[in-house]
Design a binder for these strands. Structure first.
Length: 756
DNA sequence: AGCACGCCGACT
DNA sequence: GTCGGCGTGCTC
């Protein structure tokens, strides 16, 4: 029996929190359409999906089956490689495939109006008609300048509308007129001319021996998978090594993917890349781009018209058909980990991609994550003794370590680091006398100072002098931060603001005083101390307006500022040539954190801020205010010895069985009603009884921030030395939790959580 | 996730 | 008498 018109079924991944694929009838579809975007009817709405499989029968009731509405053939299918990346992420992070896959696409392609957006973006092309080709330009009326210009431009060949509009004055009416005369018509898009490999301009300065050695090793690995950890002190010229490697990848006609942290995505970096590769096509990819712009960049990359993709974590999903090199700059940076939805680590996904595509990946940092550090070290026994000898050996040197131990500019040296003991030294508004004296010296010498305070606002709390009452956010388990400029209290967790109370909410006293120091208070204190100094504050509040951060940085770079006061925003990527002093105010704050990674983060932050001092010739000094001058972390910062610090931390992690000595997953639970979250989380722990093979499940505990925006938050940690055992466990646990969770509970599993 | 349906409280 | 709260169920 022969069946005419055999029915074809497209199995489609949709942006819904369900694990299953959905079947649709699509008779004009075949294997080559796997990875294509399709518009499908779904319930009462229409949505976008991706064809993941093609079959000729469906197990779903024929009555239920509906037909694909449209196959988007103007976009190339998502490559098999990239589908595999999505599949890996969905599996590893235990997130629905549809949401993972659709979430990795530019937002414009996820909407049902994707086809419309694509159409509107497609440039119209115009060319002369046979009739138009006959027209003698000189015989046109003298006054029709615009028409003559347009016709002569098109006689040279078809051109895109947007190009013409940009190049010719009064383009629209001229276009109209020539179309009416029938001399020109819309035309096919001319065939792409293959892009010549970009010729890099020569390096701006000679690489030193270490940089050369590092580059040589990366170059040697082009064309195969190899992970490198490029550990270079601040100012050691890691970027030059990246540029050198990228040049080689481009010369081999391969694409390069460069990931940078969110805050570091500065125009300067883009400028540096463009200056270095003037004839290469470089696109940016980050979440602050408009939807068109982002789609455009994505499409150009997919079409192979782009040589370098420079972006934040989301760029790790860019469709690069000929990927040949991956760079992750500041690989330890927390912004590479997504904190909602698909909770992926862009650094880890980047390693997966490099391995999949058989190309090198360079993870660069002055203060690498302990995960990467242990992957690169041969001495660390991080994989645990449970593994067989062969496996352990393979795990020991998974990454190759490349070290840059000297500053690239020979005249610049690492800054000297000093501690200011707050137990012995008076402080004014949080600024120690010793630091004030240092700043004064810099002012006299005409040099710049930077004061780092990792808190915005005037004071992190307001406190009643009579009964010690402190105003708290009504929605969060957190103190309200006092912002003096706008005379308001602000919650830094949910954004809620309120008026400054005139009296204590407890005892009615009018004696409320600010407690602790934020950037605003330090700025005010310094202004009072040094009335003639030019002081600029740089934090999220001061740089809210678009471009204002850049203006402030530029002004500081030109030497128009004597003292910079600010938060982390100051810590990264900006060079202030005249800066010779860095003061660090509340470094101790994270000493009390329950998070086992707090010291690692603090060390990275201190090194990063310290690195701002003395970058160009002038010797720099760093002064850290602390009540714990004997803490070993500060000793390590003073020595600027990352290896010593890392080994100390790794020993601790080994003892406590924390990453990288083990692997973690966190169940995060949120509930609106008091007690709901804790009750459910405890139930989730009970579900694991008898199922946690080689996995330790800890008790449900309140999250670091117990209540946020009205939601109570509880978490459960599960730990294992075996990644595989943990993965199996998570799969089972997730199913059990999903079956038990009522609607009033929000929950997610965070694989390899960063903040615990 | 959306989007419906459905069953109990205060209102033009 | 309706408008509308959010609990439960389904989407090829």
């Amino acid at each position: 029996m022969r069946r005419e018109n055999r029915q074809r079924i497209a199995r489609v991944a949709l942006d819904v929190p369900l694990d299953s694929l959905f079947d649709f009838v699509a008779n004009d579809i075949d294997e080559a359409d796997i990875g294509r975007l399709v518009r499908v009817p779904f319930g009462k709405r229409t949505t976008m999906g991706v064809v993941v499989e093609v079959a000729d029968h469906s197990d779903v009731d024929t009555a239920k089956l509906r037909a694909v509405e449209e196959v988007l053939r103007t976009v190339e299918p998502i490559a098999r490689n990239d589908l595999a990346v999505a599949r890996f992420c969905a599996e590893y992070y235990h997130h629905p495939l549809g949401q993972t896959l659709l979430g990795s696409l530019p937002p414009a392609l996820r909407t049902a109006r994707a086809a419309q957006i694509l159409r509107s973006m497609e440039a119209r092309y115009f060319a002369v008609t046979a009739e138009g080709a006959q027209v003698d330009l000189d015989r046109l009326p003298a006054k029709s300048v615009a028409q003559r210009g347009l016709l002569s431009a098109l006689k040279a060949g078809p051109r895109a509308e947007n190009e013409l509009a940009a190049a010719l004055p009064r383009f629209r009416p001229a276009l109209r007129a020539l179309l009416d005369k029938g001399w020109i018509a819309t035309a096919q898009k001319p065939a792409e001319t293959a892009q010549a490999p970009a010729d890099p301009s020569p390096s701006s300065f000679e690489l030193n021996e270490e940089q050369n050695a590092a580059s040589a090793q990366i170059l040697e690995a082009l064309g195969r998978y190899q992970a490198f950890l490029l550990h270079g002190i601040t100012g050691s010229g890691k970027t030059e090594v990246y540029l050198q490697s990228i040049a080689a990848a481009l010369a081999a006609r391969r694409q390069a993917l460069v990931l940078v942290p969110e805050i570091n995505l500065t125009p300067q970096l883009e400028q540096r890349f463009r200056a270095r590769f003037p004839s290469a096509s470089i696109v940016m990819l980050h979440s602050h781009m408009g939807e068109r712009e982002r789609l455009q960049a994505w499409l150009a990359t997919q079409a192979g018209r782009v040589q370098i993709v420079l972006g934040t974590r989301l760029a790790v999903f860019a469709p690069l058909p000929s990927l040949g090199l991956v760079i992750v700059d500041e690989e330890h940076d927390p912004s590479f980990k997504q904190q909602e939805g698909l909770r992926y680590s862009a650094r880890d996904v980047a390693v997966y991609r490099a391995r999949q595509r058989g190309c090198p990946i360079v993870l660069g940092s002055a203060t690498p994550s302990l995960e990467s550090w242990s992957n690169a070290a041969s001495s660390f026994d991080g994989s645990g003794s449970l593994k067989g000898a062969a496996e352990t050996k393979a795990a020991q040197s998974r990454y190759r370590l490349l070290s840059l131990t000297h500053r690239a500019v020979p005249t610049s040296t690492l800054p000297a680091v000093y501690l200011l003991d707050l137990n012995r030294e008076a402080a004014r508004e949080g600024v120690a006398e010793g630091l004030l004296r240092q700043i004064e010296q810099r002012l006299k010498r005409g040099e710049q100072s930077l004061v780092f305070v990792n808190r915005r606002g005037y004071a992190p709390a307001l406190v009643c002098q009579q009964c010690a009452w402190v105003p708290e956010c009504s929605q969060c388990a957190a103190r309200m931060v006092f912002h003096r400029a706008d005379r308001r209290l602000v919650c830094h967790h949910c954004g809620h603001t309120s008026r400054v109370p005139a009296r204590c909410g407890e005892c009615g006293s009018a004696d409320l005083a600010p407690l602790g120091e934020g950037t605003q208070r330090v700025e005010a204190a310094l202004a009072a101390q040094f009335p003639d100094a030019r002081i600029v504050r740089i934090d999220r509040d001061a740089t809210r307006a678009k471009g204002s951060a850049q203006r402030l940085f530029d002004a500081a770079g030109r030497g128009e500022v004597d003292i910079l006061v600010g938060t982390q925003m100051l810590a990264k990527g900006h060079d202030f040539p005249n800066l010779t002093l860095v003061g660090i105010l509340n470094a101790d704050a994270s000493m009390f954190s329950a998070d086992f990674r707090a010291p690692e983060r603090l060390f990275a932050q201190l090194v990063q801020v310290a690195g701002r001092a003395g970058r160009a010739g002038l010797p720099g000094e760093v002064w850290i205010q602390t009540r714990f001058p004997n803490h070993p972390l500060y000793a390590a910062v003073q020595q600027q010895d990352f290896a010593a610090f890392a080994d100390m931390q790794l020993a601790e992690r080994n003892m406590l069985l924390m990453p990288p000595a083990s692997h973690l997953v966190l169940l995060r639970v949120e509930g609106r009603k008091p007690g709901d979250a804790l009750r459910f989380a405890r139930g989730a722990v009970d579900l694991t009884r008898g199922h946690a093979r080689d996995v330790t499940v800890f008790d449900a505990v309140p999250a670091a921030l117990e209540r946020k925006a009205g939601w109570e938050r509880v978490q459960v940690m599960a730990q294992s030395r075996s990644r595989k055992a943990l993965q199996n466990f998570i799969g089972e646990w997730r199913k059990a939790i999903a079956g038990a969770a009522p609607r009033a509970i929000r929950w997610t599993l965070d694989v390899d959580p960063l903040e615990v």
